[in-house]
Design a protein around this nucleic acid. Structure first.
Lengths: 187, 187
DNA sequence: GCAGACTTTTGACATCCGTCAAAAAACAAA
DNA sequence: TTTGTTTTTTGACGGATGTCAAAAGTCTGC
Protein backbone atom coordinates (compact mmCIF):
# COMPACT_ATOMS: atom_id res chain seq x y z
CA UNK A 1 0.00 0.00 0.00
CA UNK A 2 2.87 2.35 0.74
CA UNK A 3 4.12 1.76 -2.76
CA UNK A 4 0.75 2.77 -4.16
CA UNK A 5 0.78 6.05 -2.26
CA UNK A 6 4.37 6.75 -3.14
CA UNK A 7 3.46 6.32 -6.77
CA UNK A 8 0.26 8.36 -6.59
CA UNK A 9 2.04 11.32 -5.03
CA UNK A 10 4.39 11.42 -7.98
CA UNK A 11 1.41 12.61 -9.99
CA UNK A 12 0.01 14.99 -7.41
CA UNK A 13 0.25 15.46 -3.62
CA UNK A 14 -2.48 13.79 -1.55
CA UNK A 15 -3.99 15.09 1.68
CA UNK A 16 -4.43 12.83 4.70
CA UNK A 17 -8.19 12.78 4.28
CA UNK A 18 -7.91 11.63 0.68
CA UNK A 19 -5.26 9.15 1.65
CA UNK A 20 -7.53 7.55 4.19
CA UNK A 21 -10.42 7.39 1.76
CA UNK A 22 -8.20 5.79 -0.87
CA UNK A 23 -6.88 3.27 1.64
CA UNK A 24 -10.43 2.26 2.45
CA UNK A 25 -11.29 1.59 -1.20
CA UNK A 26 -8.29 -0.31 -2.49
CA UNK A 27 -7.87 -3.99 -1.75
CA UNK A 28 -4.92 -6.30 -2.13
CA UNK A 29 -4.96 -9.47 -4.20
CA UNK A 30 -2.37 -12.10 -4.95
CA UNK A 31 -2.46 -13.87 -8.29
CA UNK A 32 -0.62 -16.87 -9.66
CA UNK A 33 1.32 -16.97 -12.91
CA UNK A 34 -0.89 -17.45 -15.96
CA UNK A 35 -4.07 -16.47 -14.11
CA UNK A 36 -6.52 -14.54 -16.24
CA UNK A 37 -7.55 -11.26 -14.66
CA UNK A 38 -10.07 -10.53 -17.40
CA UNK A 39 -11.23 -12.62 -20.32
CA UNK A 40 -12.62 -11.15 -23.50
CA UNK A 41 -16.38 -10.65 -23.19
CA UNK A 42 -16.33 -9.88 -19.45
CA UNK A 43 -16.79 -6.36 -18.19
CA UNK A 44 -13.67 -5.10 -16.45
CA UNK A 45 -14.90 -3.39 -13.30
CA UNK A 46 -11.65 -2.71 -11.50
CA UNK A 47 -8.50 -0.68 -11.93
CA UNK A 48 -5.33 -2.46 -10.83
CA UNK A 49 -2.06 -1.20 -9.47
CA UNK A 50 0.89 -3.56 -9.82
CA UNK A 51 2.94 -3.78 -6.64
CA UNK A 52 4.88 -6.86 -7.73
CA UNK A 53 4.88 -9.03 -10.82
CA UNK A 54 3.90 -8.43 -14.41
CA UNK A 55 1.02 -8.95 -16.78
CA UNK A 56 -0.05 -8.36 -20.33
CA UNK A 57 -3.14 -7.33 -22.24
CA UNK A 58 -3.82 -9.08 -25.50
CA UNK A 59 -6.58 -9.53 -28.03
CA UNK A 60 -7.32 -11.99 -30.79
CA UNK A 61 -6.88 -10.99 -34.40
CA UNK A 62 -7.84 -13.65 -36.88
CA UNK A 63 -6.31 -16.70 -35.17
CA UNK A 64 -3.40 -14.93 -33.52
CA UNK A 65 -2.87 -13.31 -30.19
CA UNK A 66 -1.74 -9.69 -30.26
CA UNK A 67 -0.19 -8.38 -27.05
CA UNK A 68 -0.80 -4.67 -26.93
CA UNK A 69 0.55 -3.74 -23.53
CA UNK A 70 2.64 -4.99 -20.64
CA UNK A 71 2.25 -3.96 -17.03
CA UNK A 72 5.04 -4.00 -14.45
CA UNK A 73 5.68 -2.75 -10.95
CA UNK A 74 4.10 0.67 -10.37
CA UNK A 75 1.91 0.54 -13.45
CA UNK A 76 -1.84 0.96 -13.42
CA UNK A 77 -3.55 -1.59 -15.62
CA UNK A 78 -7.09 -2.37 -16.66
CA UNK A 79 -9.01 -3.08 -19.80
CA UNK A 80 -9.33 0.63 -20.34
CA UNK A 81 -12.13 0.58 -22.86
CA UNK A 82 -14.25 -1.78 -20.81
CA UNK A 83 -13.47 -0.06 -17.52
CA UNK A 84 -14.43 3.40 -18.71
CA UNK A 85 -17.42 2.50 -20.87
CA UNK A 86 -18.80 -0.49 -18.97
CA UNK A 87 -18.91 -2.51 -22.18
CA UNK A 88 -17.59 -6.07 -22.47
CA UNK A 89 -13.83 -6.22 -22.85
CA UNK A 90 -12.29 -7.04 -26.20
CA UNK A 91 -9.02 -7.82 -24.54
CA UNK A 92 -7.69 -10.42 -22.14
CA UNK A 93 -5.45 -9.68 -19.19
CA UNK A 94 -3.09 -12.40 -18.11
CA UNK A 95 -0.49 -12.70 -15.40
CA UNK A 96 2.97 -13.32 -16.83
CA UNK A 97 4.36 -13.82 -13.34
CA UNK A 98 2.80 -14.30 -9.94
CA UNK A 99 1.76 -10.85 -8.74
CA UNK A 100 0.59 -8.66 -5.90
CA UNK A 101 -2.07 -6.24 -7.10
CA UNK A 102 -4.04 -3.45 -5.43
CA UNK A 103 -7.35 -2.65 -7.02
CA UNK A 104 -10.35 -0.37 -6.80
CA UNK A 105 -13.78 -0.72 -8.33
CA UNK A 106 -15.11 1.77 -10.85
CA UNK A 107 -17.85 2.89 -8.45
CA UNK A 108 -15.46 3.47 -5.57
CA UNK A 109 -13.06 5.31 -7.82
CA UNK A 110 -15.77 7.60 -9.13
CA UNK A 111 -16.89 8.26 -5.56
CA UNK A 112 -13.34 9.18 -4.63
CA UNK A 113 -12.99 11.54 -7.58
CA UNK A 114 -16.32 13.07 -6.69
CA UNK A 115 -15.35 13.71 -3.10
CA UNK A 116 -11.78 14.88 -3.61
CA UNK A 117 -10.98 17.42 -6.27
CA UNK A 118 -7.31 16.65 -5.70
CA UNK A 119 -7.87 13.04 -6.76
CA UNK A 120 -9.77 14.09 -9.83
CA UNK A 121 -6.77 16.23 -10.67
CA UNK A 122 -4.37 13.41 -9.98
CA UNK A 123 -6.24 11.18 -12.39
CA UNK A 124 -6.40 13.95 -14.98
CA UNK A 125 -2.64 14.32 -14.78
CA UNK A 126 -2.12 10.58 -14.88
CA UNK A 127 -4.21 10.43 -18.05
CA UNK A 128 -2.04 13.07 -19.63
CA UNK A 129 1.02 10.96 -19.04
CA UNK A 130 -0.58 7.77 -20.24
CA UNK A 131 -1.79 9.56 -23.35
CA UNK A 132 1.70 10.83 -24.11
CA UNK A 133 3.09 7.33 -23.65
CA UNK A 134 0.61 5.87 -26.09
CA UNK A 135 1.20 8.65 -28.58
CA UNK A 136 4.91 8.03 -28.44
CA UNK A 137 4.43 4.32 -29.00
CA UNK A 138 2.21 5.08 -31.95
CA UNK A 139 4.69 7.43 -33.58
CA UNK A 140 7.52 5.02 -32.93
CA UNK A 141 5.73 2.21 -34.69
CA UNK A 142 4.58 3.96 -37.84
CA UNK A 143 7.08 3.99 -40.67
CA UNK A 144 9.72 2.13 -38.68
CA UNK A 145 11.40 -1.06 -39.78
CA UNK A 146 11.43 -4.13 -37.58
CA UNK A 147 15.03 -3.42 -36.60
CA UNK A 148 14.27 0.17 -35.62
CA UNK A 149 11.34 -0.88 -33.46
CA UNK A 150 13.46 -3.44 -31.70
CA UNK A 151 16.26 -0.99 -31.01
CA UNK A 152 13.78 1.57 -29.73
CA UNK A 153 12.37 -0.99 -27.32
CA UNK A 154 15.84 -1.96 -26.23
CA UNK A 155 16.50 1.65 -25.32
CA UNK A 156 13.18 2.64 -23.86
CA UNK A 157 11.90 -0.50 -22.19
CA UNK A 158 14.56 -3.17 -21.92
CA UNK A 159 12.76 -4.70 -18.94
CA UNK A 160 10.08 -5.91 -21.34
CA UNK A 161 12.64 -7.96 -23.23
CA UNK A 162 13.93 -9.40 -19.98
CA UNK A 163 10.60 -10.53 -18.64
CA UNK A 164 8.36 -11.35 -21.60
CA UNK A 165 8.72 -14.22 -24.09
CA UNK A 166 9.70 -13.20 -27.60
CA UNK A 167 6.36 -14.14 -29.09
CA UNK A 168 4.59 -11.59 -26.93
CA UNK A 169 7.14 -8.91 -27.65
CA UNK A 170 6.92 -9.49 -31.39
CA UNK A 171 3.21 -8.83 -31.58
CA UNK A 172 3.64 -5.88 -29.21
CA UNK A 173 6.03 -4.40 -31.77
CA UNK A 174 3.76 -5.28 -34.64
CA UNK A 175 6.07 -7.79 -36.30
CA UNK A 176 6.27 -11.56 -36.58
CA UNK A 177 8.17 -13.64 -34.09
CA UNK A 178 10.48 -14.97 -36.80
CA UNK A 179 11.41 -11.49 -37.95
CA UNK A 180 12.09 -10.38 -34.39
CA UNK A 181 14.31 -13.38 -33.85
CA UNK A 182 16.30 -12.61 -36.98
CA UNK A 183 16.60 -8.91 -36.15
CA UNK A 184 17.85 -9.79 -32.71
CA UNK A 185 20.45 -12.12 -34.08
CA UNK A 186 21.81 -9.45 -36.38
CA UNK A 187 22.59 -6.97 -33.62
CA UNK B 1 -18.87 30.37 -28.48
CA UNK B 2 -22.26 28.65 -28.18
CA UNK B 3 -20.83 25.76 -30.15
CA UNK B 4 -17.99 25.44 -27.66
CA UNK B 5 -20.37 25.24 -24.72
CA UNK B 6 -22.65 22.84 -26.51
CA UNK B 7 -19.70 20.60 -27.10
CA UNK B 8 -18.31 20.90 -23.58
CA UNK B 9 -21.61 19.91 -22.01
CA UNK B 10 -21.56 16.69 -23.97
CA UNK B 11 -18.70 15.65 -21.72
CA UNK B 12 -20.14 16.97 -18.46
CA UNK B 13 -22.74 19.57 -17.42
CA UNK B 14 -21.42 23.06 -16.65
CA UNK B 15 -22.76 25.46 -14.03
CA UNK B 16 -23.39 29.12 -14.85
CA UNK B 17 -20.45 30.23 -12.75
CA UNK B 18 -18.06 27.94 -14.60
CA UNK B 19 -19.58 28.95 -17.88
CA UNK B 20 -18.87 32.60 -17.21
CA UNK B 21 -15.32 31.88 -16.16
CA UNK B 22 -14.74 29.84 -19.28
CA UNK B 23 -16.22 32.55 -21.47
CA UNK B 24 -13.79 35.03 -19.95
CA UNK B 25 -10.75 32.87 -20.77
CA UNK B 26 -11.40 31.72 -24.31
CA UNK B 27 -10.75 33.97 -27.24
CA UNK B 28 -11.73 33.77 -30.87
CA UNK B 29 -9.28 33.79 -33.77
CA UNK B 30 -9.68 33.57 -37.49
CA UNK B 31 -6.97 31.92 -39.56
CA UNK B 32 -6.36 31.67 -43.28
CA UNK B 33 -5.75 28.50 -45.24
CA UNK B 34 -2.19 27.19 -44.98
CA UNK B 35 -1.40 29.33 -41.92
CA UNK B 36 0.88 27.62 -39.43
CA UNK B 37 -0.56 27.57 -35.93
CA UNK B 38 2.58 26.03 -34.48
CA UNK B 39 5.93 25.27 -36.03
CA UNK B 40 8.25 22.59 -34.76
CA UNK B 41 10.53 24.01 -32.08
CA UNK B 42 8.00 26.48 -30.68
CA UNK B 43 6.26 25.85 -27.40
CA UNK B 44 2.54 25.37 -27.90
CA UNK B 45 0.88 27.40 -25.14
CA UNK B 46 -2.76 27.21 -26.16
CA UNK B 47 -5.51 24.66 -26.55
CA UNK B 48 -7.73 25.24 -29.57
CA UNK B 49 -11.33 24.40 -30.25
CA UNK B 50 -12.33 24.22 -33.91
CA UNK B 51 -15.58 26.04 -34.60
CA UNK B 52 -15.17 26.02 -38.36
CA UNK B 53 -12.51 24.72 -40.73
CA UNK B 54 -9.92 22.00 -40.48
CA UNK B 55 -6.27 21.53 -39.70
CA UNK B 56 -3.62 18.88 -39.38
CA UNK B 57 -0.68 18.04 -37.15
CA UNK B 58 2.40 16.68 -38.84
CA UNK B 59 6.03 16.00 -38.12
CA UNK B 60 9.14 15.40 -40.18
CA UNK B 61 10.58 11.93 -40.46
CA UNK B 62 13.72 11.71 -42.51
CA UNK B 63 12.76 13.99 -45.41
CA UNK B 64 9.05 13.28 -45.39
CA UNK B 65 6.07 14.83 -43.70
CA UNK B 66 3.97 12.52 -41.59
CA UNK B 67 0.48 13.76 -40.78
CA UNK B 68 -0.55 12.21 -37.51
CA UNK B 69 -3.88 13.83 -36.86
CA UNK B 70 -6.61 15.92 -38.43
CA UNK B 71 -8.88 18.34 -36.60
CA UNK B 72 -12.37 19.31 -37.74
CA UNK B 73 -15.37 21.14 -36.38
CA UNK B 74 -15.89 20.45 -32.66
CA UNK B 75 -12.44 18.95 -32.13
CA UNK B 76 -9.96 20.17 -29.58
CA UNK B 77 -6.47 20.41 -31.00
CA UNK B 78 -3.06 21.34 -29.74
CA UNK B 79 0.45 20.00 -29.84
CA UNK B 80 -0.41 17.81 -26.88
CA UNK B 81 3.11 16.95 -25.83
CA UNK B 82 4.28 20.53 -25.94
CA UNK B 83 1.13 21.90 -24.35
CA UNK B 84 1.21 19.57 -21.36
CA UNK B 85 4.95 19.50 -20.75
CA UNK B 86 5.94 23.01 -21.83
CA UNK B 87 8.68 21.60 -24.04
CA UNK B 88 9.24 22.68 -27.66
CA UNK B 89 6.86 21.06 -30.07
CA UNK B 90 8.07 18.30 -32.37
CA UNK B 91 5.05 18.76 -34.56
CA UNK B 92 3.66 21.43 -36.82
CA UNK B 93 0.04 22.48 -36.94
CA UNK B 94 -1.24 23.79 -40.22
CA UNK B 95 -4.60 25.07 -41.40
CA UNK B 96 -5.99 22.98 -44.26
CA UNK B 97 -8.86 25.42 -44.69
CA UNK B 98 -9.57 28.87 -43.37
CA UNK B 99 -10.84 28.44 -39.83
CA UNK B 100 -12.53 29.97 -36.81
CA UNK B 101 -10.84 28.81 -33.63
CA UNK B 102 -11.47 29.42 -29.93
CA UNK B 103 -8.49 29.04 -27.69
CA UNK B 104 -7.35 29.18 -24.09
CA UNK B 105 -3.87 29.47 -22.64
CA UNK B 106 -2.37 26.75 -20.48
CA UNK B 107 -2.27 29.07 -17.45
CA UNK B 108 -5.90 30.10 -17.79
CA UNK B 109 -6.95 26.52 -18.30
CA UNK B 110 -5.12 25.36 -15.19
CA UNK B 111 -6.69 28.19 -13.24
CA UNK B 112 -10.11 27.12 -14.44
CA UNK B 113 -9.49 23.50 -13.47
CA UNK B 114 -8.23 24.66 -10.11
CA UNK B 115 -11.31 26.75 -9.40
CA UNK B 116 -13.98 24.41 -10.73
CA UNK B 117 -13.92 20.75 -9.82
CA UNK B 118 -16.58 20.21 -12.47
CA UNK B 119 -14.20 21.45 -15.18
CA UNK B 120 -11.41 19.25 -13.90
CA UNK B 121 -13.86 16.38 -14.20
CA UNK B 122 -14.91 17.45 -17.67
CA UNK B 123 -11.31 17.40 -18.81
CA UNK B 124 -10.69 14.06 -17.14
CA UNK B 125 -13.63 12.61 -19.03
CA UNK B 126 -12.53 14.24 -22.28
CA UNK B 127 -9.10 12.66 -21.84
CA UNK B 128 -10.69 9.26 -21.43
CA UNK B 129 -12.44 9.66 -24.75
CA UNK B 130 -9.38 10.96 -26.53
CA UNK B 131 -7.34 8.08 -25.12
CA UNK B 132 -9.85 5.55 -26.38
CA UNK B 133 -9.79 7.15 -29.81
CA UNK B 134 -6.02 6.94 -30.01
CA UNK B 135 -6.01 3.38 -28.74
CA UNK B 136 -8.50 2.42 -31.40
CA UNK B 137 -6.41 4.04 -34.11
CA UNK B 138 -3.38 2.21 -32.84
CA UNK B 139 -5.06 -1.18 -32.86
CA UNK B 140 -6.54 -0.51 -36.27
CA UNK B 141 -3.16 0.23 -37.75
CA UNK B 142 -1.14 -2.67 -36.41
CA UNK B 143 -1.27 -5.83 -38.48
CA UNK B 144 -3.61 -4.33 -41.03
CA UNK B 145 -2.95 -4.22 -44.75
CA UNK B 146 -3.12 -0.98 -46.67
CA UNK B 147 -6.54 -1.93 -48.03
CA UNK B 148 -7.92 -2.70 -44.58
CA UNK B 149 -6.73 0.61 -43.19
CA UNK B 150 -8.32 2.47 -46.04
CA UNK B 151 -11.64 0.69 -45.65
CA UNK B 152 -11.60 1.33 -41.92
CA UNK B 153 -11.07 5.03 -42.54
CA UNK B 154 -13.83 5.04 -45.13
CA UNK B 155 -16.18 3.66 -42.50
CA UNK B 156 -15.07 5.56 -39.44
CA UNK B 157 -13.95 8.93 -40.75
CA UNK B 158 -15.03 9.49 -44.38
CA UNK B 159 -14.92 13.26 -43.82
CA UNK B 160 -11.14 13.02 -43.70
CA UNK B 161 -11.09 11.64 -47.23
CA UNK B 162 -13.39 14.39 -48.38
CA UNK B 163 -11.38 17.26 -47.00
CA UNK B 164 -7.73 16.23 -46.96
CA UNK B 165 -5.42 15.60 -49.95
CA UNK B 166 -4.44 11.98 -50.50
CA UNK B 167 -0.82 12.56 -49.58
CA UNK B 168 -1.78 13.65 -46.08
CA UNK B 169 -4.18 10.77 -45.66
CA UNK B 170 -1.59 8.23 -46.81
CA UNK B 171 0.93 9.17 -44.13
CA UNK B 172 -1.90 9.37 -41.59
CA UNK B 173 -2.64 5.73 -42.41
CA UNK B 174 1.02 4.81 -42.39
CA UNK B 175 1.29 3.91 -46.06
CA UNK B 176 2.73 5.53 -49.16
CA UNK B 177 0.67 7.75 -51.36
CA UNK B 178 1.13 5.46 -54.33
CA UNK B 179 -0.15 2.45 -52.43
CA UNK B 180 -3.15 4.40 -51.21
CA UNK B 181 -3.93 5.49 -54.73
CA UNK B 182 -3.78 1.90 -55.98
CA UNK B 183 -5.86 0.58 -53.11
CA UNK B 184 -8.46 3.21 -53.76
CA UNK B 185 -8.64 2.34 -57.44
CA UNK B 186 -9.21 -1.30 -56.66
CA UNK B 187 -12.36 -0.74 -54.60
C1' DG C 1 19.04 -37.32 -15.88
C1' DC C 2 15.30 -37.98 -18.95
C1' DA C 3 10.80 -37.17 -21.33
C1' DG C 4 7.71 -33.91 -22.85
C1' DA C 5 6.35 -29.27 -23.50
C1' DC C 6 7.27 -24.85 -24.73
C1' DT C 7 10.25 -21.25 -26.84
C1' DT C 8 13.50 -19.64 -30.16
C1' DT C 9 16.05 -20.07 -34.33
C1' DT C 10 16.86 -21.18 -39.13
C1' DG C 11 15.59 -21.97 -43.98
C1' DA C 12 12.94 -21.45 -48.28
C1' DC C 13 9.73 -18.91 -50.60
C1' DA C 14 5.95 -15.67 -51.83
C1' DT C 15 4.02 -11.15 -51.59
C1' DC C 16 2.87 -6.79 -50.09
C1' DC C 17 4.39 -2.48 -50.29
C1' DG C 18 7.93 1.26 -50.79
C1' DT C 19 10.75 3.77 -54.14
C1' DC C 20 11.76 6.13 -58.25
C1' DA C 21 10.16 8.05 -62.41
C1' DA C 22 6.95 9.63 -65.59
C1' DA C 23 2.27 10.37 -67.28
C1' DA C 24 -2.29 11.98 -66.50
C1' DA C 25 -5.64 14.63 -64.22
C1' DA C 26 -7.29 18.38 -61.46
C1' DC C 27 -6.94 22.93 -60.07
C1' DA C 28 -5.72 27.97 -60.19
C1' DA C 29 -4.39 32.06 -62.07
C1' DA C 30 -3.86 35.19 -65.78
C1' DT D 1 -8.67 29.44 -73.08
C1' DT D 2 -3.93 28.94 -71.94
C1' DT D 3 -0.29 28.07 -68.91
C1' DG D 4 1.80 26.59 -64.82
C1' DT D 5 1.35 24.15 -60.45
C1' DT D 6 -0.23 20.72 -57.56
C1' DT D 7 -2.32 16.32 -56.91
C1' DT D 8 -3.22 11.73 -58.31
C1' DT D 9 -2.37 7.70 -61.05
C1' DT D 10 0.33 4.23 -63.43
C1' DG D 11 4.40 1.29 -64.33
C1' DA D 12 8.64 -1.29 -63.25
C1' DC D 13 11.40 -3.08 -59.83
C1' DG D 14 13.56 -4.54 -55.41
C1' DG D 15 13.55 -5.46 -50.67
C1' DA D 16 11.63 -6.17 -46.17
C1' DT D 17 8.83 -9.03 -43.86
C1' DG D 18 5.15 -12.60 -43.37
C1' DT D 19 4.15 -17.60 -43.72
C1' DC D 20 4.96 -22.40 -43.33
C1' DA D 21 7.81 -25.98 -41.73
C1' DA D 22 11.37 -28.08 -39.29
C1' DA D 23 15.37 -28.02 -36.27
C1' DA D 24 17.57 -26.51 -32.17
C1' DG D 25 17.45 -24.90 -27.63
C1' DT D 26 15.43 -24.25 -22.94
C1' DC D 27 12.72 -25.34 -19.13
C1' DT D 28 10.01 -28.37 -15.90
C1' DG D 29 8.66 -32.07 -13.27
C1' DC D 30 9.21 -36.70 -12.17
Amino acid sequence: MEQLFAHLSRYHPISDAARQAVAACFREDVHAKNDMLITQGQVCRRLYFVEKGCLRGYYHLEDKEVTHWFGFERDFVTSFHSFTTGQPSVENIQLMEGAVLWSVSREDLLRLLDTFHELERLVRIAYEKYYLRLEERYVNSQFRTAAERYEQLLEQAPHILERAPLGYVASYLGISQETLSRVRGRI
